[in-house]
Design a binder for these strands. Structure first.
Length: 476
RNA sequence: GGUCCCAUCGUCUAGUGGUUAGGACACCGGCCUUUCACGUCGGUAACAGGGGUUCAAGUCCCCUUGGGAUCACCA
């Protein structure tokens, strides 16, 4: 039993973003690989921006991806007394101090510093203050060292070091008594015994301050691993204008969680030339050290390719279950029509998403479709109706409507009429599916069954007769 | 602007001083074929630039350039 403890700590101000999902995935993977614990913590110290809907959305995303957590969700809003205690402790030890400067004063100082091209840092006015006007509102600031350096060995980026003079005295408790992010994250990670912090590299600049806080609090500093950002096609931070950024949106677009996980993990991490990984393989082969250092661009094409792969490989029964909601969304009740599992089997090789598969499955359940007339025109030579009639006739006599007997039936018709397979199969496909893009004709017939096939053929015969008559009229 | 991070095909990446710089997505072409796909075979395509170190540099060092992050009583 290894003692590693990892955590994912989203703030509930929106849905689960693909970037966050990847960070969560890396944490989860490492926890599973090392047989440690994976903790989910909700960072909701900003009461105004946090919502329960966001918490639910994040949990839904995590569950969909299969990232089950061992402890939590722990809400920071439940832990305010703990943070308060640690603030008092620092205050007592003079490692923190009360600051009575107003936001207006601070803004003015910042403005001035920027004007004078100086660093906009807090000037420590209140550090040496003797009077304690506690009836006036105050914030608590961390007394940060003014010299020296703070460094750490990032598991992904290598050694990173900062001059302490770059760090000013950050606020750890607001004037309303609530603690701020950099403080609570340290208190939580410390008291929860987090051994390795894996998070986005937008937190690198926070890390030295946090290390200083660990030290002030007397806790060991954890290991850090800062994973690079995910960017959009134009190399800017991935946002809605690049497409969907919510994990759940991908679920709704018909992606499989296996594909999403596989895509996300391979974006920034690699294992030789391998592209496809089962969850077990990932757990076995993942290592945080082989995560790349540079930002990656989110590539929907590759995600689609992976999704297509997983659709092909999926167990048809399970895939059918996943497809049903997508059919329902199109107003189709799969109970009224052919066996959905058989339908799925004919579509697995030609759908990249469940949405595409639902589109491709539509004709099986909707008999009243319109025909692709333009394509049908090519086969109008006066005998098409009779070909359909012959198929219907012979097919209704066939003992077993399986692939093989359908094959021989069509071959017989072809040889009997001196026609090529495409002369018969192509128009027949239009008759049965309405269009030209569909699964193999014999598979379609087999799935549709004898009765439905014959009925569709009869409907097509009527339609073709009208077309042929029209053609004669036009020529006159 | 300060600080910090990053830099191999369009994209994701392999590469840990000696390689015809490999794979995958996408793209293009051949094959397969009852359509559309799938599949399969092949092709185009990269070490940002400049200095060092070294017998030898995509690999190590420095600079430049370019991209990104961060500088809140947000997280």
């Amino acid at each position: 039993m290894s003692g590693v403890r990892l955590r994912f700590a989203p703030s509930p101000t929106g849905y689960l973003h693909v970037g966050g999902a990847r960070t969560a995935l890396f944490n989860w993977l490492l926890a599973r690989k090392e047989k440690g614990k994976f903790i989910l913590r909700i960072e909701d110290t900003d009461l105004a921006r946090s919502t329960q809907e966001s918490v639910d959305a994040i949990l839904e995303g995590m569950c969909w991806l299969g990232l089950e957590w061992d402890e939590g969700p722990i809400y920071q809003s439940d832990r305010f007394p703990i943070y308060r205690e640690f603030v008092e402790k620092l205050l007592l030890e003079k490692k923190a101090y009360k600051c009575f400067c107003t936001p207006e004063e601070l803004d003015a100082k910042r403005e001035k510093a920027i004007q004078e091209k100086k660093k906009p840092q807090y000037d420590r006015t209140c550090l040496e203050r003797q009077t304690d006007d506690s009836d006036r509102p105050f914030v608590v600031r961390f007394n940060s060292p003014e010299s020296g350096t703070t460094a750490f060995d990032d598991l992904i980026k290598g050694r990173i070091s900062f001059n302490n003079e770059e760090l000013d005295d950050l606020i750890i408790q607001r004037s309303d008594g609530t603690p701020t992010y950099n403080f609570v994250v340290v208190v939580d990670d410390a008291t929860m015994g987090i051994s390795t912090v894996i998070r986005g590299d937008d937190h690198i600049n926070n890390t030295p301050r946090q290390i200083l806080l660990y030290e002030a609090l007397g806790y060991p500093v954890p290991l850090f691993a800062h994973v690079p950002m995910i960017l959009g096609a134009d190399k800017s931070r991935l946002s809605k204008r690049h497409g969907a950024t919510s994990v759940i949106a991908y679920k709704e677009m018909g992606f499989l969680p296996e594909a999403m996980v596989n895509y996300l993990v391979r974006l920034g991490w690699s294992y030789g030339d391998q592209e496809i990984f089962t969850k077990e393989e990932l757990i076995e082969r993942f290592s945080i050290g082989s995560v790349g250092r540079s930002a990656g661009i989110f590539n929907p094409d590759k995600l689609s390719w992976l999704n297509a792969h997983y659709i092909k490989e999926y167990e048809p029964v399970r895939l059918a279950e996943l497809l049903v909601p997508f059919m329902k969304k199109k107003g189709i009740d799969v109970a009224n029509g052919p066996d959905i599992v058989k339908v799925v089997k004919t579509l697995q090789d030609r759908a990249r998403t469940l949405v595409e598969m639902a589109d491709g499955a539509e004709f099986y359940y909707k008999a009243g479709f319109s025909y692709d007339e333009k394509s049908l025109q090519k086969f109008l030579n006066g005998t098409l109706a009779s070909i359909f009639e012959e198929i219907a006739e012979k097919f209704s006599l066939v003992a077993k409507a399986d692939h093989e007997s359908i094959d021989t039936l069509f071959k017989n018709i072809c040889s009997g009429r001196g026609l090529k397979m495409k002369d018969v199969a192509l128009p027949a496909r239009i008759a049965l599916t309405g269009g030209t893009a569909a699964p193999g004709l014999f598979d379609v017939i087999e799935v549709l069954g004898k009765e439905e096939t014959v009925s569709r053929l009869q409907r097509a015969i009527e339609f073709v007769k009208i077309l042929e008559q029209k053609k004669i009229d036009d020529n006159e």
